[in-house]
Design a protein around this nucleic acid. Structure first.
Lengths: 342, 342
DNA sequence: TTGTAAGCGTTATCAA
DNA sequence: TTGATAACGCTTACAA
C-alpha cells in the first residue's frame, strides 16, 4: 500500500496542495465551500492519511507523549508488576487516545538518556512517575516541553504535579490502627528517600504516633524495597521476633500482601495476631483473602488527570505558567485485615 | 534548547552535511579517518541529537513499534488489569529498548482505525494481542510491515506468531484434575470464540475428558467474560447449585481467583470442597491464598520473544518470508488448590 | 480565493 | 574522498 500524499489529493481535486492543507487543517475560511467539498471528497476517495513525521518536521508537534515508569532494580524491566502503575497507564492511555495523542511508554536507566529520546521524537510532553536523581529533572527542563510529575515531590514550579497527600495517607492508616486499640505498630516500607512519597507516608505515620502520645520505635521500621518478597520477609520477622507488635502499616498494597503471607508463614493469622493496613487499593486488594484494609487512591483517575493536565498545558502553552499541584483524594477502605483490640 | 542540526555539525567540522551523515550512520568507509574524527568531535561538542521524524520521512523507518492490547468492554481502557498483559508488555518493552526502538502502546476500538495509526506513524512493525474481527487483519496486511500475533490463531502465513499450545494447556490442567480422582470437572471460561485461545483450551479440556472416558456435560461449562467478577459468580453457582462438581478448570488465573472467592462466599473451601486449576501463572498466583495450582506460561519471556522475532523480521526484511509459529513452553505448577480424592 | 515555493532535518545520488 | 543537491510529505508565507 503505497503512500497517498497531499499532492495526490490536490491533483485529484484539481486544486493546489495549499488548498488541501487548509481544508484538512480546518482553516476552511481561507477557501471556497466549493473547494472544501472537492478536497474532502478527493481525500475520502483516495483514503488519504497524513504523515505525522512530516508534520512533526515542519511544526514541531508530534502528538506523541512520553510516559516513563520506574523499572525493577535487578532486571531492567518496567515496574508493571505493581498494579498501581498498570492502572495509572490505563488512565493515561485512555485520555490521550481520546485526544488523538499516542503514548511512548518506556523505562529509563537511572534517569539517563531521556533527554535524547524526547528530542529525537519531538515529544509534545511527558508524564514522569517515580523519583530520579536531581540531574534528570534539570535535563528535562532544558527540553522546554510541559511535564507532569506523578509520585514525586520536586519543588519546582516548572513541573506540573498530580499527587496525593501522602503524609495524610500515612497518618490515616496509622490513626486507624491506633483507633482500633493498637499501640505497637510496625512500618513496612520501601527505601525512605528524601522527598519521596514514601518519606511522606513515613512522616504521617510518625505524626499519628506522636498525636496519640505513642513512642516511636525505629526498630519497628522495616525498610527495604517495594516488593512482595520484602513484605513477606518483614512479615516473618514481625511474627517471629516481635511479639509486642500487633499491627503493621505497609506503604504499598503489594508489600502488605507480602506481610500477610509472611505472618502466615510463621503460623500466625491476620488479623487475629497482627493487623495490617496497606496503601493504594490496587484492584486485587479487595480480592485477596482476607480482603485488605487500605488507603485508597484511584490510580486510573490519577492517570486520566495527569494526561488531562498535560494536554491542556500543551494546547495552550502559555510558556508553562507554574500551577498549583493537583491533589487527588484519598480514603480509608475498611476491609478485613484490622482487628479491634479491646 | 534549540535544535542542533546536521548542518550545524557540518559547519563546525568544516565538512559537508553528507560527510556528517555518513559518519553518523556508520558508513565510515566512505570518508577519511581524518574527517570521521572531526565530525565525531563536532557532534560531541554540539551534543547533536538526530531528529527521527526527519529520518522517518526520508527512509521510511521510524524505529517505532505499535503494540496493541485488548481493552475492557465497558470502559475503553487497556486490559492491563490482567497481569498477563502487564508482564507481556514488560518483556516487549525491555527487548525493544535494548535495540533502540520505542513502543507505542494503545488499545483499539473494535479493531478499527489502527491502519491509520500505523500509516501516520510510519510504524516499523507491530505486536498485536487479543483477537479481532477478520477485517482488522486484512487491513493490517495492507500496510506491509512485519506483524507478530500473540494469542491468536490466524492461519495466515503473512503473520508471525508467538504462541503456546493452548489445547495442550487445557488438556494438562484437566488431566491433572482427573489424575487426582476428579470426575465432575467444571470449565470456567471467557467467551469461546472460533479460533480463539480459549476455544483451544476448551478443546483440550474435552480431549482429557474423553480420554478418561468421562462424560462431557455442557451444563458444567460456565462461559462469559475473562474477569474476576464472572469467576466469582461461577464459583458461587458451583458451590451452591452443583454439589456433584468437585473441581474446576478456569481458563485464566484471574478467573480462577474469582472462582475461589465465589466458592468461599458460599461457605465452602478450596481445595477441600472444590479443587481449582488456573491458567497463566501470573505473578500473584503464587501469592494468593491458597497458592494457585496453574498452567504456567511465562508472559515476560513471551513478550521478549515476540519483540525479538519482530525485530529480526524488520532488520532483514526479506519481504516477510512466512515462518513457523514459535511455540513457547508450558508447565503445570502444582500448588495448593487441588485436592487428591481417594 | 487560489497557487507557488520555501523551508523543516535527513539521506542518498551524482558529479567533481 | 568529498560536497552540492534533490528528494521525503507537509505547512505557510507570499504572490497572483
Amino acid at each position: 500500500m503505497k503512500r497517498i500524499t497531499i499532492r495526490d489529493v490536490s491533483v485529484r481535486a484539481g486544486v493546489s496542495t495549499a488548498a488541501v492543507s487548509y481544508v484538512l487543517n480546518g482553516r476552511e475560511g481561507k477557501v471556497s465551500p466549493e473547494t472544501v467539498a472537492r478536497v474532502r471528497r478527493a481525500a475520502e476517495e483516495l483514503n488519504y492519511i497524513p504523515d505525522l513525521s512530516a508534520r512533526s518536521l515542519v511544526n514541531n508537534k508530534s502528538k506523541l507523549i512520553g510516559v516513563v515508569i520506574p523499572q525493577t532494580e535487578d532486571q531492567k524491566q518496567l515496574l508493571l508488576q505493581n498494579p498501581f502503575y498498570s492502572e495509572l497507564i490505563c488512565g493515561i492511555e485512555a485520555r490521550l487516545r481520546q485526544s488523538g495523542y499516542h503514548m511512548i511508554l518506556s523505562g529509563i536507566e537511572k534517569g539517563e538518556g531521556y533527554l535524547d529520546t524526547s528530542m529525537q521524537r519531538n515529544l509534545d510532553g511527558a508524564i514522569i512517575t517515580g523519583i530520579y536523581q536531581e540531574s534528570f529533572y534539570e535535563d528535562l527542563k532544558k527540553v522546554r516541553m510541559p511535564i507532569v510529575l506523578v509520585d514525586s515531590y520536586i519543588y519546582d514550579s516548572y513541573f506540573h504535579v498530580v499527587g496525593i497527600d501522602d503524609e495524610l495517607g500515612g497518618y490515616m492508616a496509622t490513626k486507624h490502627l491506633i483507633d482500633n486499640g493498637h499501640t505497637n505498630i510496625a512500618l513496612v516500607t520501601g527505601m525512605i528517600r528524601k522527598d519521596g512519597v514514601v518519606e511522606k507516608r513515613f512522616l504521617g505515620y510518625k505524626r499519628a504516633l506522636k498525636e496519640a502520645e505513642l513512642f516511636y520505635n525505629p526498630d519497628h521500621v522495616f525498610e527495604h524495597s517495594v516488593t512482595y518478597q520484602f513484605g513477606q520477609e518483614a512479615g516473618k520477622l514481625i511474627a517471629a521476633k516481635c511479639p509486642e507488635i500487633t499491627a503493621a502499616f505497609a506503604t504499598s498494597d503489594l508489600m502488605a500482601m507480602g506481610v500477610i503471607q509472611g505472618i502466615r508463614d510463621e503460623g500466625k493469622e491476620v488479623p487475629e495476631h497482627v493487623s495490617v493496613v496497606g496503601f493504594d487499593d490496587i484492584s486485587i486488594a479487595r480480592l485477596c483473602t482476607p480482603p485488605l484494609t487500605t488507603i485508597k487512591q484511584d490510580a486510573v483517575s490519577r492517570g486520566i488527570m495527569a494526561a488531562d493536565r498535560l494536554l491542556t498545558a500543551i494546547e495552550k502553552s502559555k510558556e508553562g505558567l507554574p500551577q498549583e499541584p493537583t491533589i487527588m483524594p484519598l480514603s480509608l477502605i475498611d476491609r478485613d485485615t484490622v482487628l479491634k483490640l479491646t
